[in-house]
């Protein structure tokens, strides 16, 4: 192996670029949906009616304790048997979102449970409705508490999106497979793509820390750090 053996891989940059765009899209959409739905699930699992709590518990336990590959195969190959046929990209988005929602639910729930009961009582005594108390009073500090854990989970989703290649979604890993089989440069193709993932993960982490400073912590973090 020498540097020139990478040339074949770099010649395929347009497909690498397409794969990169797909990976970024899968990650951003499922991250956004997963955090929003995870928040709602956390709320439901703590304050919802009993049946809803049990449903959410079961859902979370199932998706946190089965392999992601099995989940994505079920959604892509299994659901058509039940009459729901999804194209690969949609199936991938659904699988990533459902998986992330389960983890996000647990993370946010932990943050909410660490909030003293007095916060909710103070909000209630001021006349805020339960939903207002949840979103205005309980949730923001809960998010601040768990944002580092959430950041790790979102990076894991970025890396897990590689498994979507298994249902032929043309993301980065899929393109690496294609390049490898076209050029027989297996090692080089995977090295290049692995380094791209590394770069993406670092960038994504920085972006999430910016999101944290801008939307999650607000002035509060900078004030508290003084």
């Amino acid at each position: 192996m020498n540097l020139s053996s990478f040339i074949d891989v770099f010649h395929s940059w347009p497909s690498l670029l397409n794969g990169l765009v797909m990976t970024v899209m899968l990650t951003l959409i499922s991250s956004f949906l997963g955090v929003v739905l995870g928040t709602l699930c956390a709320w439901g699992s703590l304050r919802g009616p009993k049946a809803l709590r049990w449903f959410i518990r079961g859902y979370v336990e199932f998706f946190r304790n089965t392999p992601f590959l099995g989940q994505i195969f079920f959604i892509f190959f299994g659901l058509p048997a039940l009459g729901l046929r999804l194209d690969p990209v949609t199936a991938a988005l659904v699988a990533l979102t459902i998986n992330l929602t389960a983890y996000a639910c647990e993370i946010i729930r932990a943050g909410i449970e660490a909030t003293p009961a007095g916060q909710f009582e103070a909000a209630s005594s001021l006349g805020l409705k339960p939903a207002q108390a949840f979103f205005l009073v309980i949730l923001p500090p809960a998010f601040q508490r768990v944002w580092p854990a959430m950041t790790s989970q979102l990076v894991i989703i970025l890396l897990a999106s590689a498994l979507c290649s298994q249902i032929s979604v043309a993301e980065l890993s899929y393109e690496a497979n294609m390049i490898a089989s076209r050029t027989f440069r297996n090692f080089e193709a995977y090295i290049v793509v692995t380094l791209i993932y590394l770069g993406l993960a670092v960038l994504f982490r920085d972006m999430l820390s910016w999101v944290g400073r801008r939307f999650v912590y607000g002035d509060f973090a900078t004030e508290a750090q003084r």
Partner: peptide
């Protein structure tokens, strides 16, 4: 009915001013 608690229960993520205006604005 207003209430004050032993442990104050101020909202830590809001400024003092925001603590005071939250309920007037939302309720």
């Amino acid at each position: 009915v207003g209430m004050c608690f032993q442990h104050f229960n101020l909202f830590p993520h809001l400024t003092i001013l925001e603590n005071l205006t939250l309920a007037p604005i939302w309720v």
